[in-house]
């Protein structure tokens, strides 16, 4: 082999190793860039979730940590087969989530459609509408507690004005649930309005003009244009609101305390009760995992449905 050929080979091998290094660096760079986020998420979400899942497989009492024992799925079996309060709370949480979600969506959609054409004072209106959403659930619960009070509450004052007998709103299971769900709907509708208004603003006006030229009615416009194009916004609202509502805790504690009796206990309240009152770490971790699985299942189902809708 001539010197020139060797030199060429050396140069080319040097060149390829430099390119190799560059390629490796280019390949590594994205991973390096996302590493802080991955580490952060791993530290604050993945690790605690895994630790919680592991804990849920143990019989572990906070007051006697040295006496813990591995029970596998025993905590889950006990919750679903023996713990009547958990089963009742499971049903109530589902009911609460679906009723408040449906009502919030319906009211939010109607309000957003009515607000969308309004131009004058829109910012002020939106600002006012957002007030309930800015309020902490505890403050909302305490405030609405005054509204639902039997003797001096605003709700009964209205009933008395209408010559209707006052109702013990927070003292009967059904009316307490109604009071709680109404308060939650009042609190969450502004968020729904805000997201749907953003979705409405993104729909090109030409589509409506074309539909009108073709003689479409208002209802046809809504069904054929508005609703399908609002689906991404609606999916977002549904996913977020479902997760928020499934883990309800603070509003219940502030408004009904989970009562009367245990009728408005949610899974969040049961979790709190197991951990902070009975100090049962394993069982409360199992409730947490049940909530996580429920939230995750709903979110994935909604998103899949929304995607299949877009595809179809």
């Amino acid at each position: 082999m001539s010197h020139a050929a060797v030199a060429h080979e050396d140069r080319s091998s040097v060149g390829s190793s430099v390119r190799g290094r560059q390629l490796t660096q280019e390949r590594l760079l994205p991973y390096l860039l996302i590493a802080p986020t991955v580490l952060l998420l791993g530290g604050v979400f993945v690790y605690p979730a895994l630790e919680n899942a592991w804990l849920s497989l143990w019989s572990w009492k906070l007051t006697a940590p040295d006496q813990r024992s591995f029970v596998g799925l025993g905590n889950y079996v006990e919750l679903f087969t023996k713990n009547t309060l958990f089963r009742q709370a499971f049903g109530f949480t589902l009911l609460y989530t679906f009723v408040t979600l449906a009502a919030s969506l319906l009211l939010g959609l109607v309000a957003a459609l009515l607000l969308h054409p309004v131009r004058a004072s829109r910012r002020i209106l939106l600002g006012l509408l957002l007030l309930p959403y800015m309020m902490s659930p505890v403050a909302a619960g305490l405030g609405w507690g005054l509204i639902w009070g039997r003797e001096f509450g605003l709700a009964n004052a209205l009933l008395r004005f209408l010559k209707v007998s006052p109702v013990s709103w927070l003292a009967q299971p059904t009316t307490a649930a109604v009071a709680l769900m109404t308060t939650e709907v009042w609190r969450s509708v502004p968020f729904v309005i805000l997201v749907i208004l953003a979705g409405l603003a993104a729909i090109p006006s030409e589509l409506f003009e074309a539909a009108r030229l073709d003689g479409a009615s208002g209802w046809q416009e809504f069904r054929g244009i508005t609703l399908p194009l609002l689906m991404p916004s609606l999916s977002l609202v549904v996913v977020f609101e479902t997760i928020f509502k499934l883990r309800v805790f603070d509003l219940i504690i502030a408004l009904t305390g989970g009562g009367p009796g245990t009728s408005t206990h949610s899974l969040g309240v049961v979790l709190y009760r197991l951990y902070f009152r009975y100090f049962e770490g394993g069982a409360s971790a199992a409730v947490g995992i049940v909530l996580l699985v429920m939230g995750g299942t709903f979110a994935i189902t909604y998103l899949r449905l929304a995607r299949s809708g877009e595809g179809g």
């Binding site: 009070g149 039997r150 003797e151 013990s168 709103w169 927070l170 003292a171 009967q172 307490a176 009904t256 305390g257 009562g259 009367p260 009796g261």
Partner: peptide, 9 residues
Amino acid sequence: VPKDLLAFG
């Protein structure tokens, strides 16, 4: 007793 005794703390 008060009618709303279950909301009476």
